[in-house]
Simulated scan of single mutants.
Amino acid sequence: MDERVPRVYGADADDPDPGPEPGRVYVELIGGPLDGWLVDVTRWPADEIAEGAALITEYGAYGGGGRAWYSGRPGQDSGRWWWDGDSA
């Protein structure tokens, strides 16, 4: 059984514990190159959390410096963002 802790977006690649921290608020990324990762939105305004984000990643279709676009879905779990696609 796989008991991996989800990786937090922005954690250092060599961080021995890249998982979530207690007392923080996260959204889970669904689909795309960062599927299963978490984004710390602890200090984000509610409207920005609802909007989503373009996250810099080397894992998307455009390689290093490309963006993976994630956003919330009306009527869906507010603790999740779904992949909308990649861009340069």
Rank of each mutant, 00 (worst) to 15 (best):
24 R>M: 06
37 W>V: 04
24 R>N: 07
34 L>E: 00
39 V>E: 00
36 G>E: 04
26 Y>V: 05
41 V>I: 12
30 I>Y: 02
20 P>S: 14
41 V>Y: 08
35 D>L: 08
43 R>T: 04
22 P>A: 14
34 L>K: 05
41 V>G: 09
17 D>S: 15
43 R>Y: 05
37 W>M: 14
22 P>N: 07
28 E>K: 15
30 I>V: 10
34 L>D: 00
28 E>Q: 15
21 E>V: 10
38 L>D: 00
17 D>L: 14
26 Y>I: 06
24 R>C: 07
23 G>A: 13
37 W>E: 08
36 G>K: 12
25 V>A: 14
13 A>M: 09
27 V>L: 06
14 D>N: 15
33 P>Q: 11
18 P>A: 02
42 T>E: 03
23 G>N: 10
33 P>V: 10
39 V>A: 11
13 A>W: 06
38 L>S: 05
37 W>G: 02
20 P>L: 09
34 L>W: 01
14 D>M: 13
13 A>H: 08
18 P>W: 00
23 G>C: 12
21 E>G: 11
19 G>V: 01
21 E>D: 09
32 G>N: 04
43 R>K: 12
31 G>W: 01
34 L>R: 01
20 P>M: 08
35 D>H: 14
29 L>E: 02
43 R>A: 14
39 V>K: 08
38 L>F: 06
39 V>T: 03
30 I>R: 10
31 G>E: 00
21 E>F: 04
37 W>H: 14
20 P>C: 11
30 I>F: 03
41 V>H: 07
32 G>H: 02
19 G>Q: 04
36 G>R: 09
27 V>Y: 02
31 G>T: 03
25 V>N: 08
25 V>E: 07
38 L>N: 01
25 V>H: 12
36 G>V: 06
36 G>N: 10
43 R>G: 12
30 I>A: 05
40 D>G: 14
29 L>G: 06
26 Y>F: 12
34 L>C: 04
32 G>E: 00
32 G>L: 04
32 G>Y: 01
40 D>V: 11
24 R>Q: 09
43 R>M: 05
19 G>L: 08
21 E>K: 15
23 G>R: 10
15 D>P: 14
28 E>H: 13
22 P>Q: 10
17 D>H: 15
39 V>N: 02
29 L>P: 04
18 P>M: 02
17 D>Y: 13
36 G>S: 13
21 E>P: 01
17 D>M: 13
15 D>Y: 13
27 V>P: 08
16 P>C: 10
18 P>D: 00
43 R>D: 09
24 R>T: 02
15 D>T: 06
23 G>P: 09
18 P>Q: 03
20 P>Q: 11
16 P>S: 10
20 P>G: 13
19 G>R: 07
15 D>Q: 13
36 G>H: 11
41 V>R: 08
43 R>E: 04
16 P>Y: 09
15 D>L: 14
27 V>A: 05
17 D>I: 05
19 G>K: 11
33 P>L: 12
19 G>N: 05
41 V>A: 09
